[in-house]
């Protein structure tokens, strides 16, 4: 046996930095190269043409981690231009760390204006919520999607779920809900409630609460969904029927807040966060949509926070 020392292919350059490309112009406008943008743009059109149908695409790695909104981010970057005004929310909040991080990145590579005001935004990237304020026709709402496949709940194999969509065979999903009712006398699905789009495709609305589902049905804005890790794009065009799966004798229900109002702005009829105070152990409720809450607070200074928004734990 002959020992032989390993040798590197070529001697490293005297200064390793020499081998780095120059920093200037290293990233193009909106980070993605034009080829990647075009691919995403083509796929988005197909997604719009077949509402609720998951369209595969060559998802690119982003400088934020998979699962942290890389899908939504890729759509945002493929769409954005200098005239856009961007809003990013996470759990309804504009200043949540992940939303701040995404906004920071997008403004860094585009220089676009950002806003927290839902009405002022042209592009809204969101995780887990639809803003309370109704959207207008020219606004785009872009959802970050962790798991695009609604049937994953009942079938782990992509090959199989692809077939089920082809045949519109959603019997196992119906069976799942039915068994839920038999077992619990209630449908136990919380967020990520499956919906039927345009009476054809079963769709995962991303983990938005059931509260937000009615806003998808025949909405005025275009809703775009993207899962970066799972490499799927889908869409709900405006004025498209979006129906949560339900039975005649078991209606779909949104989350109940028993008439509670926001402890901060006093609004009734918004999705509420439940907050438990450290010191007193008391439960209070406040709007999950922080921009809506701010607006209500400013436009409605007369209506102060009311104690009825609280509850003894």
């Amino acid at each position: 046996m002959t020992p032989r020392m390993p040798s590197r292919a070529s001697a490293p350059p005297a200064d390793w930095r020499d081998s780095l490309p120059p920093a200037e112009g290293r990233y193009s406008y909106a980070f993605l190269d034009e080829g990647a943008k075009r691919e995403i743009r083509r796929r988005m059109l197909k997604a719009v043409a077949i509402p609720g149908c998951q369209v595969p695409f060559g998802s690119r790695e982003m400088p934020i981690a998979r699962g942290w909104g890389t899908g939504g981010l890729q759509l945002t970057l493929a769409l954005i231009g200098p005239e856009d005004v961007l809003k990013v929310i996470d759990q309804g909040a504009d200043d949540s760390v992940n939303a701040v991080n995404i906004k920071k990145f997008v403004t860094r590579v585009t220089g676009v204006a950002v806003t927290t005001d839902t009405a002022a935004a042209t592009l809204i990237q969101t995780r887990h919520r639809i803003p309370e304020e109704p959207l207008r026709p020219n606004q785009l709402l872009i959802f970050q999607v962790p798991i695009p496949e609604p049937l994953r709940l009942v079938e782990p194999s992509e090959r199989e779920t692809r077939r089920m969509h082809a045949e519109a065979d959603y019997s196992r999903m119906w069976l799942y809900l039915y068994e839920d009712i038999v077992k619990f006398n209630e449908i136990t699905v919380g967020a990520r409630y499956p919906v039927l789009v345009n009476r054809r495709h079963l769709m995962d609305p991303s983990p938005i609460p059931r509260w937000d589902l009615p806003k998808l049905d025949r909405g005025e804005a275009l809703f775009l969904f993207c899962a970066g890790r799972e490499k799927r794009i889908y869409a709900v065009p405006p004025y498209t029927e979006v129906q949560p799966l339900a039975f005649e004798d078991f209606a779909f229900r949104v989350e109940a807040f028993a008439g509670r109002r926001c402890a901060r702005c006093g609004s009734v009829g918004t999705y509420l966060d439940e907050v438990i105070d450290d010191a007193t152990g008391r439960r209070t409720y406040s709007c999950s949509d922080t921009a809506f809450c701010e607006k209500a607070l400013r436009g409605n200074s007369v209506k102060e926070a009311r104690p009825s928004g609280e509850d003894r734990a």
């Binding site: 209630e186 449908i187 999705y271």
Partner: peptide
């Protein structure tokens, strides 16, 4: 690894909206 690690760590992100939705279901049951 990039995908699995990203998804594993994304659970550190706040999920209170979805958790509220789950709470609603359990309380109702």
């Amino acid at each position: 690894g990039i995908e699995s690690m990203g998804f594993c760590n994304h659970y550190k992100l706040p999920h209170y909206v979805t958790f509220q939705s789950e709470l609603d279901r359990l309380r109702r049951i």
